[in-house]
């Protein structure tokens, strides 16, 4: 019987022990990891926010620093999930052969891919909470609506983990990930309203921006941090979920193809 690489994914709770494994590894290096989650966004927010923000007027009724903070939450959670699913995921799959060891047990590749997404999303959650605390400490958000950033971080994590896994499944080596960062992640940060409002872009680029998941994450995060209920909540959530599901299925098919060699 040939295995069908396009088969519908089989969900089971067997991804939990893999998540626990990754957590145990992470716990051993939690200090540097948390510092990493905090340092980068804080440097951006303070550097750009105070430096650039001092020269800029308010944007849509908020200071530039407050404007930037919403972008930074999404940007950080996107990066956390992407790095985890690309570099660490590739190490587990290829270099350390952790997946191979796991697949010799009753755990299957489907469980492993689910665990990778769940784990990367957990790292995003951590990252999102870390940035949110900085935002609170800087007094940039005074609203209980800002708590919604926590589930949003998880959703953004699922989305970017799933998309990044497609790249991991195709990668011959670590160098390959530079293409993804240079051609996808960097343009995305510039097009999706992290540093400036999307409506500053030419109309054509605004169309591109509307198709990118980071735009939808920021369209949710920015009003929430500013104490307003976002417009078109269901639409933005649906786009992020759509990318998650599509990324999950595509990467699973590609991993099945890759590992059946």
């Amino acid at each position: 019987m040939k295995m069908n690489i396009y088969a519908w994914p089989q969900f089971s709770r067997r991804f939990v022990p893999i998540w626990q494994r990754n957590y145990l590894v992470w716990k051993k290096m939690a200090g540097p990891s948390v510092l990493g989650h905090l340092a980068d966004p804080v440097i951006y927010m303070l550097g750009l926010g105070f430096g650039l923000g001092a020269m800029l007027p308010e944007i849509g009724g908020m200071s530039y620093l407050a404007f930037l903070s919403a972008g930074t939450v999404c940007y950080s959670t996107m990066n956390s999930a992407s790095f985890e699913a690309l570099y660490s995921g590739f190490a587990r799959m290829h270099e350390q052969r952790t997946w191979e060891a796991i697949m010799n047990t009753p755990v299957t590749l489907d469980d492993i891919v689910i665990s990778e997404i769940a784990w990367a999303a957990s790292k995003s959650l951590l990252s999102g909470v870390a940035v949110l605390m900085v935002i609170w400490l800087l007094g940039l958000a005074h609203t209980p609506l800002s708590l919604w950033i926590i589930p949003l971080s998880l959703l953004v994590g699922l989305c970017f983990a799933a998309v990044a896994l497609i790249v991991t499944a195709l990668a011959p080596g670590y160098e390959f990930f530079m293409y993804y960062f240079t051609l996808v992640i960097t343009p995305m940060t510039l097009l999706c309203g992290v540093f400036f409002p999307v409506d500053q872009l030419p109309t054509m680029l605004q169309g591109v921006s509307a198709a990118l998941p980071l735009t939808h994450a920021i369209n949710l995060a920015r009003p929430l941090l500013n104490g307003a209920i976002p417009a078109h909540v269901m639409w933005h959530v649906a786009v992020l979920l759509g990318y998650s599901l599509l990324g999950f299925y595509l990467s699973l098919v590609l991993f099945r193809r890759r590992l059946a060699q």
């Binding site: 145990l24 590894v25 350390q96 052969r97 010799n104 009753p106």
Partner: peptide
């Protein structure tokens, strides 16, 4: 595989 053990050709222990 619930009742099977495997010793692979290449080491894939968890180095951490």
């Amino acid at each position: 595989r619930q009742r099977v053990g495997v010793v692979p050709q290449m080491d894939n222990l968890d180095p951490d």
